[in-house]
Structures are given as C-alpha cells and as structure tokens.
Design a protein around this nucleic acid. Structure first.
Length: 939
DNA sequence: GCAAGGTC
C-alpha cells in the first residue's frame, strides 16, 4: 500500500482527487480521521503539527530549588503527540505501508511537520521507504509533477524549523518563569515573555511613551477661494504649513488683488502597475473591498484548497521563472474575465511588475484555476476576482496622468493649484479597486487675472502619533518580520488576555509597561525584533547546511545563559521593580499633610482621585474629574513648589487635558469657594492653606473645637467659620442643582452653553430652582433663551419646586406628580383648598386627598380640613347637577367655595362663595334660590 | 502554569 501524508485534511482530499484520475476515491472515517483511498493508495491529512516539543519530565514545578528557571536552558526536550487520534491512525496505516510519501506544505514548517510524520512512521515501520513530494499549488499539473518526481525529505530544512522550536521554547519558558517568580505572580497572572510577543508589546509601549511625550504645535493653513468661468477653485499658499503665527497672518494680510497666473506647468505622471500579491498585500486589498483580514485569510485558504488560487501564505512578490504566465492568462480566457484578459494579452508589459521580496517557498498569490460566480458564491468570488484582477494588473502597462500645476501671485504671495487627468488607463482598466481621483482644473494662461473670493486662514495643531489598531500593528509586525501570517493575530490576542494591553486602539497596561521596562533593562534581546531577524538568518544557514541546527541552538543557549547572569544578579531588583513600577506609575509625590505618597487612584466605576498612601490615618485627598474626561496619568514634569508630578487626563479622540500640579490646581480651584465665606480674608485664607486646609467641605466637616485648635483661634470664631462653610456648601449644592436643571430643560444650542446661562443667572442673584421659578422672564431672555424656552423653564421650575415642597411635606411621589400637574404648588394649598376641589382637578380619590391634606397640614402646623368620603362627594355631586345651570365645570369651582352638595349650597353665603369660586354672585343666588324652590316643592 | 508555529 502507498501511504500519502498531507499537511491537513482538505489538502489530503484534494491530492487524492487529483491523483485518482478516473478512479473513484473512497472516503472513510477511521478513529475520527478522514482517509481517502483509490487503487493501492491511501491519503491521510495531518493537522499541522501533530506533536509538540516540550521539556522532558521533571521541570513542571516552577518553584523547585533544584530546577530554577535557568535550568530550562539546558533541559532535554521531548516530542509529545498533541493530536493523538491522527498519530494513532498514521502509525496504524504506516505498519501496512510499503511506501510513504510526505506531501506537506513546501516551507520550513511544512518540512518539519513532514519530519514529525516521518519519525512517527519509522517508529512503527523502520524499513519503509519514505519519499517527499513538493508542490506550491494544488493544481492537477503541479501535483502530478510533484508525485512523478518525488525527492527526499530535506532534513536541513526541517532542522531549521526544529531549532526555532527549541529556541522559542527555551527562551520563552525560562524568561516567563523567571519574571513571573520575581514579580511573585502565578496562576492566571503570570507574566509571559517570548520572541514575538515581547517585541510586539514593546512597540505598543513605545508608542504610548511617544504619545505621552508629545507636545502639540500650532500651525496655520492658508487657502484662497477663486473661480474661473463659474467653476470654484481652491488655491493653497505654497508655504503649506505655517508654523509661525505672525508669518501666517502676515501672508494673509499681504494677499491682495490682483490674483495673477504666473505659471502653468503641464506634465505627465507614470502611475506604476501594482506588484504581485503576498499575504499582507492581499489582506490590505481585501480590507478595501470590505473583507476583514481574518475572513480574507479563511476564504483564501479555501480557494487554495479547491485549486482556484495558489498558496495564500507567502512573502514572495516576484513571479518565479517556473510560473507559466501565459498558461494562467490562457486559463483566464475561460472565465468571466475573458475581455480583460484579452486586453492584457494585447497590451502586455514587457516584464511583469515585481515587488521587493523574493522567496522560493511559494509564488506570489495568483489564480490557478477557472471559477464562476455561481460556483463560488459572493464572498469567495469577490476575493477570487481580486486575485485575478491583481494578476492581470501586474501584467498590464502603467497608467498615465496628465498633470497640471498652476501657480498664482496675489500681492506677492505665491499660491498654487494642482490637478490631474487620467490619460492612459493602463492597469487601472483591469484593476478598478484603488481610486483614480481626477481633479480637473480650468485651463489658465499666464498673466490671466482671477477674482479673490475669500482668503481663509485655518489654525490647526500637530497631532501625536495614533495608537496602533490591530490591523496596523499586524502590518508593522510584518514589516519587522515578527510572527507569521497565521500567528500575528493570535499574538495580539495573547497580549490582551495576559492583560498587558487594552483592546481598542491598543494601549499598554501598567503591568505590560513594567514588564517591558524590566526586560529592556536586563534582557534587552527578547524585547527587540532583531532576535527574530538573527534567528531567521541562522535558520537560513541551517537550510544551506552551512551550520548545524545543534550549533545554532547551543549558541542561543549560551546567549541566554549570559542574559540570565544579569537577570539572576538583579532578581530582587527586577521583581520589586515590576511590583513597584505598577505602583510608581500611580505615585504623584509627597502628601502635603503627612509626607507619605500621594497616589492616583481609580475608585469603582468612573471616578478617580488622588489619595494618600497613609490612608486611613491620613485622609488628605484631591478630587479629579471623572474618567469620562480622560484617564488620569502622571507625566514627567514635577511641580517645584509641591514636588508633585503633573497630572494629565488622556482620552481617546480628544486633546489631553493637562491639569498640571494637582495640588496647585486643587488650591486654586478651591480658593474661589473659600472666598465665598463672608469672614474669609486674605490672611485667613493663607493661614488655612498653611495648615493644609484647602477646601470648604473640609471646614464644614470639622468641629469648631477642632478648627479652633488647628488655626489657634477662638471656638466662637471657629463655629462661625464652620457655619459659613456649611452655608457656602448649601449654596453651591443649590446652584449645581439649578445648573443640572437648566441642562435638562434647555435644549443645547450653538453659542449658548448651559454653563453660561447659569453664570448669568447666578450673577443676577438667582441661586436655585426656587428663585428661578420667580425670576423675571427678561433675565432669561437676556441669557439667550427664546420666549417659549423662557416660559417652559419658568413653568418647569415652579413645578419642580412644588414637587419638592410636596414631597418634603411627606406626600408620596406618585400623587405629587398628579397634584403638580393639576397646578397645586405646595402644602399650603391643601390647607387652603377644599379636598373635593383638589380631587376633582387632580383625579386623586377624595379620601386620599384628605389623607394627604392631613399630612400637609401637619407639616405646616395648620388645622386639617373636614373629612369627606368619596361616596358622599358623589351623591353631593348628583344633587348639584340637578340644580339648573350647574354643570361639571361649575361644580369644580363650587368646590373651591366648599360647596359639595345641595345642603352646603343652600347654607352658603352667596357673596363669600362668589369670591372663593369666581362665579358671579347673581348666579350663586340663582342656584340657592332654585334649591330652596325645589325643597319647597318636595315638601 | 511557560513560546511559537502549524491547523480549524
């Protein structure tokens, strides 16, 4: 039996289908693994590596004294099956095989996977001949060729891969253990280190340092609007960015009529056809057509497996000589791209474009088989089309642009406008993905004058470099050679799961930063991309048999030993360093009260503050704006007066907010409120601050005795101060309540901030919602409110006041809402108005109203109204409705006069009732008369 | 409990 071992299931299936030619392929599942048989041949797919390299037993205890982290450097390694089912099946089949062909991918890692298979086979069948088939695309032609001329396994190539495995394991595991133990972290909190992850983390840390150091510089852009034949045209000042304000303004000032064309330059620009696809370029291009990197990779893999495109994991951007470009073009004439292909065949450039990277493992990504849209479905077709079009573009002529540059002069100031028109479409004809934005500018002649419509000077600011996005980081990793196409994404995930970085635009955590700083100080090698470059150079030497794998690994072990010399000598320092630095990042400087450390602290949720590490003995603290304004970080600058680090609030997409010295800012921002206390004098203020009393709340919380002791003043004076402090706090509380109210009730509008409205009101002596309710409408209008807004605000203010007062009187919130809506403005209304009336207007049952009236009157210390039941009220209403001239509306008014039924109407004094109800006295008299007539009739 | 690299 002939056994063929492929790298993965899907390529096993595909290889079987091709090699079987006309024979039927029997698919069989054995022990959960698919096998593909035809004739005497069985094809089985691995799952990439099916064994894993690890240390020999005896090194599992991290804290073993005999086996410290450093002992891992020279520890023996073993290969351990990780895919047991596949290993078992492979060995079962190998026993029956009389020939084995390794058909794994054609690269160092594929060769190693092949060698792993070979070792597994030889372990059970030492004598079986083992061959190697090499192919870089799973196409019938390529596969047939590869199997027609099989070679030997390349042990040097596999050894290159093995060396990488061991070096990665040894460095990674030993350093991970060392740093974790030093920083006393275990379990889920270990601090991992690795050849790829650590330099990647270092990049993120570096970027963060850059952003923190960044100081924005202002600059100015000067533009001029003109027109020609009614076509608007924007000109730029040739200076571009003005960094000097006076120069910018000077240039603007000097820009004057006439605006004259001084020069017209026409030219031709070659727009080079794009280079062949490697993985990164494919992923970037796929991103432009709306396919995410991860998705694109998955689809490309699938297209490759089914023979539509070549191997999608490649760094090569140069077509190898062996690739028959004519044949690919011929194949494409059988696709939907026949027209484009024929055009390319006709206009083909002498040699295809080539990129910078040339490697031999795989050709650039190109189409290998014809496909239809129906066959592939939308997404796969989109990517296939992209690969096809890119291939065509690499064989197409360059595009050509006709460019035009027009220079102007306006009062001696030079301006310019540039335009471009696509003259020769070239490759853009077959590759329409990148935008070819034409900018046509009107034809101008030298000496011509155009009008100056406006001259605009715009002030801008230089921006700090942005944090890495995941895809940007993947690109940078690629540029630096960190990781592979299939691992880069995973590395970033690892940094996130280790809590080294936060997702979003990637930002390092304190721990991530501390680890990088420690490694930079003592094991610099592992934090730099150079380690990967060196490793790759060494792997190349192994491939070329200029060095043995063993030599390379041993050299690396030697280097790691010398790294450990430094590490072990500083273990305590490194451990404390990491522990301290996570703390130090938050430490601001000495507490003004007790001298211990002030620290930036994050409370639960969105609050942050500066607290004393001496808490609870020392309660000194400085409040900070919530994290919605930015996360507080320490910056390098230190306050000369207080010795405290300056604090900055950083927020995504916003300019950092520099608070400066937090204590200076604390003192300054609170001095104003302290001065609101009537007894506050400059001398007293200085005295308070000298005693580290900076805020009104601190005074308000103190007992007079305490304050007297601290300041050396009399208890009586101190008591006055404490009382004043409480008054100020109360005033501030009411003002802030009012501000909140205005924010909620007044819609936002340009040039009218809520803070500004509140400020104007406060200046006019309005400090709370209550006085706002009684404010003159003119005042609000002056603050920028419209008539409608003014009325709304005043009404709402009154309502809120009513609500508040009713609630304070002890009425439940649900009913209060109803009363307020009915115009009841306070508890005294319950004493003054008849419950029947309140019930009628508010819809609350009269018994409930009466109960509330009792509560309200008790709060006021007034006599409660007489009790009345719902039943009695209803029967009384019936009686009243009988009276001619009395309807629902009249009844409500009669209630105001305490008239609830026929009897009370009869007994009413018409004059008094008229006054209370607002009904004309004649009408009341008529009602009363009608009642007495009725009564007489009844009798 | 460690890495990085295959594959899914």
């Amino acid at each position: 039996m002939r056994l063929i071992v492929a790298e993965k299931n899907i390529s096993a299936r595909r290889v079987a289908a091709i090699l079987a030619e006309d024979q039927r392929v029997a698919t069989k599942k054995e022990g959960g693994v698919d096998t593909y048989s035809f004739g005497d041949t069985t094809v089985v797919g691995l799952k990439g590596h099916v064994v894993e390299v690890d240390f020999e037993p005896g090194y599992t205890n991290w804290r073993s004294a005999e086996r410290p982290p450093r002992s891992l450097i020279d520890a023996g390694t073993v290969k351990r099956p990780t895919e047991k089912k596949i290993v078992a099946l492979l060995q079962k089949m190998a026993k029956k095989a009389d020939q084995v062909i390794i058909a794994t991918d054609f690269d160092a890692e594929g060769e190693l996977i092949g060698k792993e298979a070979l070792e597994l086979v030889q372990a059970v069948n030492p004598r079986v001949p083992i061959l190697r088939a090499r192919f870089s695309a799973i196409t019938p032609q390529e596969i047939r060729r590869a199997f027609a001329e099989p070679t030997e396994l390349d042990f040097a190539l596999a050894a290159a891969g093995e060396s990488r495995q061991i070096i990665d394991l040894v460095w990674g595991a030993s350093l991970t253990r060392f740093i974790s133990i030093a920083a006393r972290r275990g379990g889920a909190n270990i601090l991992s280190v690795g050849r790829v992850q650590s330099p990647t983390l270092a990049m993120i840390v570096d970027r963060e340092r850059e952003i923190e150091r960044f100081v924005p510089e202002p600059y100015w852009m000067l533009t001029l609007q003109t027109e020609k034949d009614h076509t608007p045209l924007e000109l730029r000042h040739t200076a571009g960015r003005f960094t000097d304000r006076d120069e910018a303004f000077g240039a603007k000032e000097r820009t004057k009529d006439p605006l004259t064309v001084t020069e017209v330059k026409e030219g031709v620009k070659h727009d080079r056809a794009p280079t062949p696809f490697d993985t990164t370029a494919l992923l970037v291009a796929a991103g432009r057509v709306g396919i995410s990197a991860a998705n694109a990779m998955r689809i490309a893999e699938d297209l490759y497996m089914n023979g539509f495109i070549s191997y999608p994991r490649t760094d090569n951007t140069v077509y190898p000589a062996t690739l028959d470009l004519d044949e690919v073009l011929g194949m494409l004439t059988k696709t939907a791209f026949a027209n484009e292909t024929r055009w390319v065949e006709k206009h083909r450039r002498p040699t295809p474009t080539r990129g910078k990277k040339s490697s031999t493992d795989h050709p650039p990504i190109h189409p290998t088989g014809p496909a239809t849209r129906e066959q592939l479905g939308e997404d796969r077709w989109k990517l296939y089309e992209l690969v096809v079009r890119r291939f065509l573009a690499t064989l197409s002529p360059d595009a050509e642009w006709a460019t035009m540059k027009v220079n102007f002069d306006a009062g001696g100031e030079p301006y310019t406008a540039t335009g471009g028109r696509l003259k020769e479409e070239g490759w853009r004809r077959v590759y329409p993905y990148s935008r070819a934005a034409e900018r046509i500018i009107p034809v101008c002649t030298v000496g011509e004058r155009l009008p100056i419509l406006s001259v605009d000077l715009e002030e801008k600011e230089t921006q700090p470099p942005p944090r890495y996005t995941q895809s940007r980081l993947i690109q940078t990793m690629e540029e630096l050679g960190l990781g592979t196409k299939s691992t880069r994404h995973e590395v970033i995930q690892k940094l996130i799961s280790r809590r080294y970085v936060q997702d979003g635009p990637l930002r390092p955590t304190l721990v991530g930063r501390a680890v990088i700083e420690s490694l930079e100080a003592h094991a610099d090698t592992i934090t730099r991309p150079d380690m990967t470059r060196t490793l790759e150079a060494h792997m190349q030497l192994i491939k070329e048999r200029k060095k043995s794998g063993e030599d390379v690994v041993n050299e690396s072990r030697g280097m790691l030993h010398s790294v450990f010399e430094g590490l072990e000598a500083h273990e305590d320092q490194i451990g404390e360093g990491i522990i301290d630095r996570t703390v130090a990042e938050r430490t601001i400087g000495p507490c003004p009260v007790c001298g211990k450390d002030l620290q930036l602290r994050q409370a639960h949720g969105a609050s942050q503050f500066i607290g004393c590490s001496g808490y609870p003995e020392c309660t000194f603290n400085i409040s900070l704006p919530g994290v919605m304004w930015g996360k507080a970080i320490r910056v390098e600058k230190v306050c000369e007066e207080h010795g405290l680090s300056h604090v900055r609030l950083i927020r995504k997409g916003a300019r950092p907010w520099d608070i400066g010295c937090p204590l200076c800012s604390h003192i300054e921002s609170n001095a104003e409120t302290l001065r609101m206390m009537p007894s506050m004098s400059p001398g007293l203020l200085a005295e308070l601050q000298a005693r580290h009393i900076y805020t009104v709340p601190e005074i308000a919380r103190m007992t007079p005795e305490d304050l007297a002791g601290r300041l050396g003043i009399g208890t009586k004076t101190a008591a006055t101060l404490v009382a004043e402090a409480n008054d100020v706090l109360d005033l501030l509380r009411r003002r802030s309540e009012m501000k909140k109210f205005i924010r909620a009730e007044v819609p936002p509008r340009r040039r009218r901030s809520h803070a500004k409205i509140a400020k104007q009101l406060i200046e006019a002596g309005i400090d709370d919602i209550q006085s706002l309710g009684g404010a003159k409408p003119g005042l609000l209008k002056k603050a920028g409110l419209s008539d409608e807004e003014t009325e709304h605000l005043l009404t709402r203010a009154r309502e809120v006041n009513s609500e508040k007062r009713l609630k304070e009187a002890g009425l439940p919130a649900v009913s209060v809402k109803k009363y307020v809506a009915a115009g009841i403005s306070g508890p005294e209304d319950f004493a003054a108005l008849h419950p029947a009336y309140i019930s009628a207007v508010s819809g609350v049952r009269v018994e409930t109203v009466w109960k509330h009236a009792q509560t309200a009157c008790e709060a006021l210390g007034r006599e409660p109204p007489e009790k009345i039941t719902q039943k009695k009220l209803e029967s009384g209403k019936k009686e009243l409705l009988q009276v001619s001239g009395i309807g629902e509306a009249t009844i409500e008014r009669l209630y105001l006069a305490g008239i609830t039924d026929a009897a009370s109407l009869a007994a009413a004094d018409p004059k008094e009732a008229a006054a209370k109800s607002g009904i004309a006295v004649e009408k009341i008299r008529a009602y009363v008369a009608s009642i007495s007539t009725e009564r007489k009739t009844k009798k």
